[in-house]
């Protein structure tokens, strides 16, 4: 079944425009529970109440408070917050194209797949042009009253937009000091290299499953049928404290020949 688009926009690349539909590329599978009143199993309703009187405050009477460091509370109304919203627009402006590694994963937040919206030629041309380039676009757009920045690139031969975090949220690597110490032993370095090489593999995401989620679903299904399920737990692994011995031992296990 085809997914439903969450938003429609127009990519603006200098003088070219490409109308697109956005589809969420992530479908969270977290199991959601409802809170119920135990007595009659009715879903509860959540209300905001005054801390002292316990009286329910209706949604339209709720204000927002910003706490300052020196113990003050600045009260903001819904209208004031609304006035901070950016002007809505359908444009997805491409600010520039950058080498592919320029924006690293720490900035990535959420991926959206792009589909054509009325101009398939422009869409396929965009995919083709992105595919033959080693750069990716830095985009900016307003969606649902929020400003987003994102990376425009290809994924499985289709264009995607991956939203980026704000500069305020991402700790810069330049701010960190690199752990230092004595020069490393060449032999240990070589052995560790061999060990990493011996453990080399290709990444197969399908190999990993959210087992907790599966167990919770299993519990729910079993309870629906009136059963109880058993759990299995793994024991922690044994390691050794001596680095050289550990490397040697690991290499032996990995079936590699030790260098003299």
């Amino acid at each position: 079944m085809a997914a439903r688009a969450i938003w429609r926009g127009i990519i603006l690349l200098a003088d070219v425009s490409v109308p697109v539909k956005l589809y969420g590329a992530v479908e969270e599978k977290t199991i959601h529970f409802r809170l119920l009143h135990g007595k009659d199993q009715t879903p509860v309703r959540q209300e905001m109440v005054h801390p002292e009187t316990g009286e329910v405050v209706p949604a339209e009477a709720i204000h927002h408070g910003y706490e300052t460091e020196d113990g003050k509370m600045v009260i903001l109304t819904n209208e004031e917050l609304k006035s901070l919203d950016p002007e809505s627009s359908r444009q997805i402006e491409i600010l520039r194209f950058l080498p592919r590694s320029a924006i690293d994963h720490r900035w990535y937040e959420r991926p959206y797949l792009l589909g054509p919206d009325g101009d398939p030629e422009a869409y396929h041309a965009l995919a083709e042009a992105l595919g033959s380039s080693d750069t990716e676009g830095l985009a900016r757009w307003i969606m649902r009253n929020r400003e987003y920045h994102g990376v425009l690139r290809l994924l499985g031969h289709r264009p995607v937009l991956i939203t980026l975090r704000h500069a305020e949220e991402v700790v810069s690597l330049e701010e960190l000091n690199i752990p230092a110490g004595r020069e490393m032993d060449k032999k240990e370095l070589a052995m560790a290299e061999q060990l990493v090489a011996a453990m080399a593999d290709t990444f197969d995401p399908a190999r990993y499953r959210d087992e907790y989620r599966e167990r919770v679903m299993g519990l729910i299904t079993a309870k629906a049928k009136g059963k109880i399920i058993e759990l299995h737990r793994a024991a922690p692994k044994k390691t050794t404290r001596n680095l050289k011995k550990a490397l040697e031992g690991s290499l032996r296990t990995a079936g590699m020949r030790k260098h003299g």
């Binding site: 009659d40 309703r45 209300e47 905001m48 801390p51 329910v56 408070g65 706490e67 509370m73």
Partner: peptide, 17 residues
């Protein structure tokens, strides 16, 4: 931001049947 009443008193979340 926190949810407050118009006098700035921080509100509490409660569940109702």
């Amino acid at each position: 931001l926190r949810m407050v009443d118009r006098h700035g008193a921080p509100l509490r979340r409660r569940y109702f049947c």
